[in-house]
Each structure stands twice: as structure tokens, then as C-alpha cells.
């Protein structure tokens, strides 16, 4: 299972401040539109869903289509409300999940 790489622009934030999250994960993002050398369509296999929660509460999510590049990169912000766990989850077409986490301290 791929280990996502996550960067928060700050580990500590004042309540109400914006925190920027950048995340990268290794994945082929096979579009389902390519053919192999024998002319057979290579089946689609992508990460189709991304979510970010802070202490279990959703702050941002995204639905990916095959047009999202391989090794998907995602960057977004959330408003710091409380200290706790920032959890990032990617869901594969096959139902498996890639999960990564960071912590944020809100003062």
C-alpha cells in the first residue's frame, strides 16, 4: 500500500486561520482508455474519491475522474477550529483505501 506524503503549511494555527494541505500519493490512475500491445483495453483503475477530515468532521473532499494525473496531487485549505487529527483518505476503484494523517494544534 502506498504511503501518502502530506505537507501542512503550519502545525500550529490560531482558531479561524486557514491551514494549507498538500498531498501526493503514488498511483497509476489507469484511465481505462488505453490499449495494450495486443490491442486489448487496459481496465480502468483509479483513485476515485479523496476526503479530508479533522477529528472525523469532513472539511474537504473530491471525486476524481480518469483525467486526474497519475500520482494524484491535491492541495486545499481548511479553517482551523480545534486541535486534533487531520486524516486524508483515498478510495480505489477496487474498494481499497489509502490513509494518511497529520496533527494540528489550534490555539
Amino acid at each position: 500500500m502506498a504511503v501518502p506524503r502530506i505537507k501542512l503549511d503550519r502545525k500550529e494555527a490560531k482558531k479561524g486561520e486557514l491551514v494549507e494541505v498538500k498531498a501526493l500519493v503514488s498511483h497509476v490512475m489507469e484511465s481505462g482508455q488505453r490499449k495494450d500491445s495486443a490491442g486489448k483495453t487496459i481496465p480502468r483503475k483509479i483513485l476515485n474519491k479523496f476526503t479530508c477530515t479533522v477529528n472525523g468532521k469532513a472539511v474537504f473532499s473530491a471525486d476524481f475522474e480518469p483525467a486526474v494525473a497519475a500520482n494524484p496531487y491535491i492541495q486545499f485549505k481548511f479553517k482551523a477550529q480545534e486541535s486534533g487529527k487531520v486524516e486524508l483518505t483515498w478510495t480505489d476503484d477496487d474498494g481499497s483505501k489509502i490513509v494518511g494523517e497529520e496533527t494540528i494544534t489550534v490555539t
Binding site: 486557514l18 484511465s31 468532521k57 469532513a58 486526474v68 494525473a69 486545499f76 485549505k77 481548511f78
Partner: peptide, 13 residues
């Protein structure tokens, strides 16, 4: 509203 701002970046084909 928890997002604080409606801003996102990804890389596309």
C-alpha cells in the same frame, strides 16, 4: 463552511 475558502489544486491530463 469548514473549508474556510473554496480553493483547490490538482494536476490533470
Amino acid at each position: 463552511p469548514a473549508s474556510g475558502v473554496a480553493e483547490a489544486n490538482t494536476r490533470i491530463r
